[in-house]
Design a protein around this nucleic acid. Structure first.
Ligand SMILES: [Zn+2]
Ligand SMILES: [Zn+2]
Ligand SMILES: [Zn+2]
Ligand SMILES: [Zn+2]
Lengths: 142, 142
DNA sequence: ATTAACCCTTGAGTTAACTTTAGAGTCAAG
DNA sequence: CTTGACTCTAAAGTTAACTCAAGGGTTAAT
């Protein structure tokens, strides 16, 4: 019916101490405790933790994630408009990251494609030449 | 003909201390010094610094960036194949980040679209409901 | 010649996000 | 009923990536 911290840790591959840390930081709601003081996590904690870990792997800070997750806590204090605004701000952030990554991908891809990847010395490698002179081409738009 | 550190700092919006730090960390080649001990940066340092800053904003660690930039230093020690392999590993990393971000974007977009963004209390906001129960939908693929 | 704005180095301080340590209680198996 | 695997808290330690501070030369302008 519920998980002890070690179980949640295994299910999510998230270190036990990190789980307690996330609780301290307000990312995980404090779960009910048993008479022994143990944390007994409801099942959806697994999804919650995975969400945190994944958002993190996408470059969101814990503060970002807290904002995303805290929306639900502010419930009574906010309007639908407030909530939607936060969501859309996040969407814009994600979209910006995507387009910057794409831009960098294209630049690196182009540079990489020009090299034959042979076993010859890299002395005259086109990738190296590009990095030396042109690596910042991806920055053109700035 | 060359920039003093303060000029480079302004041109790149990169803190002076950070520039010296990048030099210590091997991300910026030590520039020639004047008789006064001042650093005199060649012009392409601007592009180099911007490349570092941008790669950073895309989630690359300084170690990642050092790898990207150091390719050019290893020149004689490596073959074209070695170089290309590093480039392609980076490409794969970027591609993975892009697809994960897209996935998260779609999930959040869907949740957000269901909310009308009205001035009514968020009590019954669909975004909140989704976050409560389903925020981790983006994780389905794991 | 003074002074404000630069530059130098070394070393310490900061923030985020953990991770480890220490000391102590709890539970399940043999 | 003891032993090993868990759990608890509070606090200190760690790593990456800066950032600041102290103390002292340099340069350009008034
Ligand atoms: Zn860019
Ligand atoms: Zn090559
Ligand atoms: Zn994913
Ligand atoms: Zn709503």
């Amino acid at each position: 019916m519920s998980y002890k911290i070690g179980e949640l840790s295994k299910l999510t591959s998230c270190n036990i101490e990190t789980l307690r840390y996330y609780e301290r930081e307000g990312l995980l709601p404090p779960p009910p405790r048993g008479n022994n003081g143990y944390r007994y996590y409801p099942q959806d904690s697994v999804q919650r933790v995975r969400f945190i870990l994944h958002a993190k792997s996408l470059g969101f800070s814990l503060a970002d994630i807290a904002e995303l997750l805290s929306i639900q806590v502010d419930k009574n204090a906010s309007t639908c408009g407030d909530v939607k605004q936060i969501a859309e701000h996040k969407l814009a952030t994600i979209a910006r990251k995507i387009s910057e990554l794409k831009e960098m991908y294209r630049a690196l891809e182009k540079v990489s494609a020009a090299c034959d990847g042979s076993e010859a010395s890299a002395e005259h490698c086109t990738i190296l030449q590009a990095l030396e002179s042109d690596a910042a081409r991806a920055e053109k738009h700035l």
